[in-house]
C-alpha cells in the first residue's frame, strides 16, 4: 500500500513538471492535430485563392504552383466588394452605437438605483434573451419593409439587430456596474454631484472595459449576421455575408475566385477578433457566468 503511494507521487510530480516546462510529446502532437483541423479549412481557402481553377482541379490538395495574384486583385478591383464592405461596416457601426448607448443607459438605473420596478424591468430584458430574431422574422420583415419603409436601408437592419442584442448587453453590463464600489457614488454625492453627473463623470469613464466588451460582441454579431440582411437587403445594399453567399452561387465554377472573395471577406472580422480577443472571450464568459 505504502509502496504504491510512494511510487505514484514521484510519477505525479514528473508529470506536473513536464506540464510546466513544455509538456510531453503527446500533448504537443494532439495540440498540433487540433490546430491542423481547426485552421486547415481556413488556410485551404486562403491558399486556394492564390491558385488557378486549373490547378485546383488537377490537384486539389496541392500548394499554389505558381502563386497567382489575379483572383485577389480581381476581387479588390471589384467595386461590389467595397460596396458590400461599406454596407457591412455602416450597419455594424450603427448597431454597435445603439446597443452600447441604450445598453449602458438602461443598465445604470437597473444596477444602481433602488426602485420598485427594478427587478421586473430587468426580467423583461432577461426574457428578451429567449426570443431569437428567427421567431419573429416574418412579421419583422413586414414591419420594417412595409410599415416603417426601412427595407433595403442601413437603419432597417441596424435597429432590429440592436433590439435583439440589447438583452445580452444589459445582462452583461448590469453586474459590471453593480460591482463599482458604492463609496465612489457616496463621495460624488458629498461633493454635490447629482446622479446624472455621477453617470457622466464617473460611471461612464469607469465602465469603459464593459462597454468595449458588449460593443465588440454587438459588432461581430452584426458583421456576421445573415438572416435579417437576407430578407431585408437587395442589390447595392447587400452586406458581405450576402455578397459572399451570392458570389459563391453565381460563380460556382470559379472556385479560386470564390476562395479569394471569401478570404478577403473574412479578413476584417479576423483582424478585429485578434485585436479584441480578450474582450470577446471575457464577454462570452461573462454571459455564461450570468
Amino acid at each position: 500500500m505504502s509502496t504504491a503511494t510512494t511510487s505514484i507521487k514521484p510519477a505525479m510530480k514528473t508529470k506536473k513538471s513536464q506540464g510546466k516546462y513544455g509538456g510531453n510529446v503527446l500533448v504537443y502532437a494532439l495540440s498540433l492535430a487540433v490546430v491542423a483541423l481547426t485552421l486547415g479549412p481556413v488556410l485551404y481557402g486562403v491558399l486556394g485563392g492564390f491558385r488557378t481553377n486549373a490547378q485546383l482541379a488537377q490537384a486539389p490538395a496541392a500548394l499554389p504552383e505558381p502563386w497567382v495574384l489575379s483572383n485577389y486583385t480581381g476581387v479588390l478591383n471589384n467595386p461590389e466588394f467595397w460596396r458590400y464592405a461599406l454596407n457591412s461596416t455602416m450597419i455594424a457601426v450603427l448597431t454597435t452605437v445603439i446597443v452600447v448607448v441604450f445598453g449602458i443607459m438602461a443598465a445604470y438605473p437597473l444596477a444602481r438605483y433602488q426602485f420598485r420596478l427594478r427587478e421586473p424591468i430587468f426580467m423583461v430584458f432577461v426574457l428578451g434573451l429567449l426570443f431569437p430574431a428567427t421567431v419573429a422574422i416574418v412579421p419583422l420583415f413586414i414591419l420594417i419593409s412595409r410599415d416603417l419603409n426601412l427595407g433595403n436601408t442601413w437603419w432597417g437592419v441596424a435597429l432590429p439587430q440592436a433590439a435583439f442584442a440589447l438583452p445580452m448587453t444589459i445582462v452583461i453590463l448590469r453586474p459590471f456596474l453593480i460591482a463599482l464600489p458604492q463609496e465612489l457614488e457616496e463621495a460624488a454625492q458629498l461633493d454635490g454631484t447629482s446622479r446624472i453627473g455621477f453617470f457622466w463623470r464617473i460611471l461612464l469613464p469607469l465602465s469603459g472595459p464593459g462597454m468595449v466588451t458588449v460593443g465588440v460582441l454587438a459588432f461581430v454579431g452584426s458583421w456576421n449576421a445573415y438572416l435579417l440582411p437576407l430578407l431585408l437587403l437587395q442589390g447595392e445594399m447587400r452586406t458581405l455575408p450576402l455578397g459572399v453567399a451570392d458570389f459563391s452561387t453565381e460563380h460556382s465554377a470559379d472556385t479560386a475566385g470564390v476562395f479569394a472573395f471569401t478570404t478577403l471577406a473574412m479578413i476584417p472580422a479576423l483582424i478585429f477578433f485578434l485585436a479584441m480577443q480578450r474582450r470577446i472571450v471575457s464577454g462570452l464568459q461573462g454571459a455564461v457566468k450570468g
Binding site: Y44, W223, N224, V258, A265
Partner: peptide
C-alpha cells in the same frame, strides 16, 4: 481554436461547401 467561432457561418459554410 477560437478562430472558427469568430468567422461568420456564411464564410465557414462557403469554404466547407467547396
Amino acid at each position: 481554436i477560437f478562430v472558427p467561432y469568430v468567422l461568420s457561418e456564411v464564410i465557414a459554410g462557403v469554404v466547407w461547401f467547396q
